[in-house]
Amino acid sequence: MNTDQIIQLAYLGLLGAAIVGSYIFANKSNLGKVAQQAAIWGMIFVGVIAAAGLWGDISRDIAPRQSIAGSEIVLPRANDGHYYVTLDVNGTDVDFVVDTGASQVVLTQDDARRIGFAPDDLRYLGIARTANGQVRTAAVKLDQVTLGPYTDTGLRATVNEGQMDMSLLGMTYLGLYDSISITDGKFILSR
């Protein structure tokens, strides 16, 4: 926190204290009612903060998920327009954003760590050109990747040395399917 932020916080604290103090002074004959109203507003404030903090979990739980229909894997389009999928990689669930523009499967450093790679020990010899510029990448091999009834072994992937919000499911994986289509807001993979 820098000096300007500290000054702003102090100013807002003093302003809030002045408003609360003047309200209590103006209603000193009804302190019981003031305390009751303050408790109600405090609970409303805590509820709003809790809902905002948990919104990602709540929306993920009520949003449609990937499903299996016969030999097809169906991924619904998310509210942000992307398609997301969870794969079992080396025994660990990893969330991916489907990226047909990515030539490879690209792992974040956190996901790489979770599935058993030590990102600090990898050799970043490759270069990827992204919308954010060039980043170094390290080649890895995924022992086992499972999506629904389909398990693939020895899949090549890369670990991105730069910052990424989520791992990318690119064409080295998507190309294993016989058919890829987008219909009625659904991304459909079939073998």
Rank of each mutant, 00 (worst) to 15 (best):
N2Q: 11
N2P: 11
T3P: 03
T3C: 05
D4A: 12
D4K: 10
Q5S: 13
I6Q: 15
I7G: 00
I7D: 03
A10F: 05
L12R: 12
G13N: 13
L15V: 06
L15T: 06
L15P: 00
A17S: 14
S22Q: 09
I24V: 13
N30L: 03
A35K: 13
A35H: 08
Q37F: 11
A38Q: 10
A39G: 11
I40G: 06
W41G: 13
M43A: 15
F45L: 14
V46C: 12
V48K: 03
V48Y: 00
I49Y: 06
A51Q: 02
G53M: 07
L54S: 13
W55H: 14
G56E: 14
D57E: 14
D57T: 15
D57G: 15
I58E: 00
S59E: 11
S59D: 12
S59N: 10
A63F: 08
A63K: 13
P64Q: 14
R65I: 03
Q66F: 02
A69L: 13
I73V: 15
V74Q: 09
P76T: 07
R77C: 01
A78T: 04
N79G: 12
D80K: 04
G81K: 10
H82Q: 06
Y83K: 05
Y84W: 00
Y84S: 03
Y84C: 04
T86G: 08
T86N: 12
T86E: 14
V89S: 04
V89E: 03
V89A: 07
G91R: 09
T92Q: 15
V94Y: 04
F96I: 00
V97I: 15
V97H: 06
V98Q: 01
D99E: 07
G101K: 05
G101P: 11
A102T: 08
S103T: 10
S103M: 07
Q104S: 15
Q104R: 06
V105E: 01
V106S: 06
V106R: 00
T108D: 03
D111G: 05
A112C: 08
A112T: 09
R113Q: 10
R113E: 09
R114A: 10
G116N: 07
G116Y: 01
F117I: 12
A118W: 00
P119L: 05
P119W: 08
P119I: 13
D121V: 04
D121W: 00
L122A: 10
R123Y: 07
R123H: 13
Y124S: 06
I127M: 08
A128R: 11
R129D: 08
N132G: 09
G133S: 00
Q134N: 15
V135D: 03
V135L: 05
A138D: 09
A138G: 05
A139S: 07
V140S: 07
L142R: 04
L142S: 10
D143F: 02
D143H: 04
T146W: 03
T146Q: 09
L147T: 09
G148S: 14
P149H: 10
T151L: 04
G154R: 01
L155F: 03
A157G: 10
T158C: 05
E161Y: 02
M164Y: 07
D165F: 01
D165M: 05
M166I: 11
M166Q: 04
M166E: 09
S167M: 01
L168G: 02
L169P: 06
G170Y: 08
G170M: 08
L174C: 06
L174E: 01
G175K: 00
G175V: 00
L176G: 01
L176V: 00
T183V: 14
D184R: 14
D184Y: 05
D184L: 11
K186P: 08
F187V: 02
I188N: 03
